[in-house]
């Protein structure tokens, strides 16, 4: 690392080489490649849903009648308001993936930040942060999320918008992020601990670099791999949790994520009415995306994490 930093062209060269080498190793992981392919499909759907299925249908613009079974006109049937399920599911990809992405950002920022600080600073700070992490590990995060979400909603008001995102969605994002960083913090910390022992940190410390700088310049680049792998796994968890939170009524009815569609199906009594098509598409989408993220995450973890061990 440090040796290559002296001259820049060989370094870039080396990076390219490392990237190519990594691509080769990753491509030999069938599971990772399959996962990546699935994710690509959903990513494309999420980026431009209207290209494939037109604008999101509402109760007003619904194109069918109530609970139609799949047909040529509605490949995946309609919901109780006559909206096309395919249309909803494809738009749902955008909403679910966006929430998943933002929640992952918060989770990883918190987890990596706390993990790095805890591991690097050591001593009392470490003890305190790890105790906090332990508490958050034990706390049932979903239950905490349930408690937190309505209160946040009441405070900012369900109709408010922040950064162009409706408050309800934002609350879900924040709630997932705040409640699920603990695992990441643990994993990053243990990696930092072993890194800390490595020589270059000592050298940097001797020269008189500040802690913050060492953490940013020397520790962070070396845990980036781990962070990447962990992010992908967290993304799976975030999509999963978003679906569950929406299902119990914390979602935004005007932004039908997959969980929200399933919640609507449940309250319309779709299972009892044997309206399987109302459930199939969003359910399969959730499962596919979570499976895909898990496959990619595990492959990355095996390739990037020096000690992938038994853990969640």
């Amino acid at each position: 690392m440090t040796a290559a930093a002296v001259t820049s062209p060989p370094r870039r060269h080396r990076r390219l080489e490392a990237a190519r080498d990594f691509a080769v190793r990753f491509s030999s992981r069938t599971d990772g490649v399959v996962g990546l392919a699935i994710l690509l499909v959903f990513a494309i759907l999420a980026i431009a849903p209207q290209l494939f299925v037109g604008p999101l249908e509402t109760a007003v613009t619904a194109t069918g009648s109530s609970l139609e079974a799949p047909s040529a006109a509605h490949l995946l049937g309609t919901d109780e308001l006559g909206r096309d399920i395919l249309n909803l599911t494809v738009h749902g990809a955008r909403i679910s993936m966006t929430i998943g992405f933002l929640a992952t950002l918060i989770t990883i920022a918190l987890g990596a930040g706390i993990g790095i600080m805890s591991g690097y600073l050591g001593g009392k700070a470490d003890a305190l942060l790890m105790w906090l992490t332990d508490v958050f590990l034990v706390l049932p995060n979903f239950v905490l999320a349930i408690a937190l979400a309505p209160i946040l909603l009441d405070i900012i008001g369900a109709q408010a918008e922040l950064f162009g995102i409706r408050a309800t969605l934002l609350v879900i994002v924040v709630v997932i992020g705040v409640t699920s960083w603990a695992t990441t913090a643990r994993i990053i910390r243990s990696q930092v601990l072993s890194l800390k022992e490595r020589m270059f940190v000592d050298r940097a410390r001797v020269i008189g670099t500040g802690s913050g700088r060492i953490m940013r310049r020397h520790i962070l680049p070396n845990v980036v791999n781990l962070i990447v792998a962990q992010s992908v796994l967290t993304f799976a968890y975030a999509v999963f949790t978003e679906t569950s939170l929406s299902f119990i009524g914390l979602g935004d009815p005007f932004a039908p994520s997959w969980g929200e569609i399933l919640a609507a199906a449940q309250s319309a009594g779709a299972p009892g009415l044997l309206a399987w098509w109302y459930i199939a598409a969003p359910a399969v989408s959730v499962v596919l995306v979570v499976v895909a993220f898990t496959l990619v995450g595990n492959a990355l973890d095996d390739l990037l994490n020096p000690k992938s061990a038994v853990r969640r």
Partner: peptide, 23 residues
């Protein structure tokens, strides 16, 4: 196992109702 692991509980429950209860 991987598929089950990726399924929220209600996604498991709803098909069960469709098949074994309503069906």
């Amino acid at each position: 196992s991987l598929v089950l692991y990726s399924m929220p509980y209600f996604v498991i429950g709803m098909p069960l109702i469709i098949v074994f209860a309503a069906g």
